[in-house]
Design a protein around this nucleic acid. Structure first.
Lengths: 206, 206
DNA sequence: CACAAACTACACTACACAGTGTAGTTTTTT
DNA sequence: AAAAAACTACACTGTGTAGTGTAGTTTGTG
């Protein structure tokens, strides 16, 4: 629960090794399925060293989740443009969104994180936060489009949910659930195009 | 994995107690978080009795998952009608779908099952099967509407995904993830109405 | 070099849990 | 009443795992 104070160690070449090994383990075996002994072994490090850097399994897990969620910020931002065609803009947004959520790491992370929400709701907030970041751009885009009179949207947040839902149901959940079929980029792009078409049919003023 | 032969016991009043207790435990604590000792205790039954009825924890879990998934079949069926308005029909379908997936038991089950997909993909198939059942009606409805010329749908399966996605993103996932806010029936119905409106805007020939 | 931080090896505690074995008791069926 | 089935109490095995304690070794730095 606590995080207390970060133990700043002058230098610690093994720290990175631990993080990498733990990431691999957590993402492929889940939280419960990962043992600290195995992490240590995979990192070529003594178990004690693992605990010198991370006070507990929970802390290690958190550190890794946080690290991966940072990458969510790498998603390109999209500002609303008065000039460019709506469908082009929305297509770009949708593609960025789809690419981000279907990235291998994000996908695996989602599995682990989702699985652990159930038992440990303490972890939900900060993670949900990162997930919310994925929609921020979208929502403000819809707001702008609404103000600009090109979109007839009552509730931008709901609109964002709808847009995301259209994409995720096809490009995200099937892969996350079944685990097997990695949705091809062709299918993914088609899903985005369909979503844009449907969305604008409904919300665009024309 | 195995299921071997069902041990048919003449009468076993305690069997039901075990199932009920185990359901409660599994659905609130997850698979890993549930211990057979606690199940026995909660059922007011000796641990041995639990094992007399179910050879393993896995088997017990499976039995319970199967039992709950049976209820999916309780969802009312909707046949396409040439006469009735499309939006009315689709609204009914959407409502049934939304009600089914947001039912307390189904929701809790989904959490547990989804969490366990990750570590144990063996369990995926039969469960995915039940989930697929939820869309069957929808897909055949779209096919009928297409044949009847009232719906301009290229791919009924994708259309079903879209329709489901529109609803789930608002009425299902937020509750499943955050765990906190139980989506109100008002919000749920609104989500269905919005989905129908958007869907028909795009696919209805008019 | 000398000092401290980083690290190792390894033994060890403590616990939780799946599953079994058994001897004996209650309940149901015939 | 007698046999069979259902059930209990409880001890017990085995295993996996989080986390600690310690004594000693390596490595970077002033």
């Amino acid at each position: 629960m606590a995080a207390a104070k970060e133990k700043k160690r002058r230098k610690s070449p093994k720290r990175q090794a631990v993080i990498e090994a733990a990431t691999e383990e957590f993402l492929s075996r889940g939280f419960a399925g990962t043992s600290m002994d195995r992490v240590a072994e995979a990192a070529n490090v003594s178990k004690r060293t693992v605990y010198d850097h991370f006070p507990s399994k929970d802390a290690l897990f958190q550190a890794i989740v946080d690290e991966i969620l940072m990458h969510v910020d790498d998603m390109p931002t999209h500002e609303y443009s008065r000039e460019q065609a709506l469908d082009e803009q929305l297509l770009a947004i949708g593609k960025s969104f789809a690419d981000t959520i279907t990235a291998k790491k994000f996908m695996k992370l989602s599995k682990v994180v989702i699985a652990n929400f159930i038992q440990s709701p303490e972890w939900a907030p900060r993670t949900m936060n990162a997930y919310a970041r994925l929609r921020r751009d979208m929502i403000s885009f819809f707001k702008s489009g609404k103000k600009d009179g090109r979109l007839q949207i009552r509730n931008p947040e709901i609109a964002a949910s709808q847009f995301c839902g259209l994409i995720k149901e096809i490009a995200f959940w099937p892969e996350l659930m079944a685990g097997q079929k990695p949705v091809t980029s062709r299918e993914r792009n088609a899903a985005v195009r369909d979503a844009v078409a449907m969305f604008l049919d409904h919300y665009a003023t024309d």
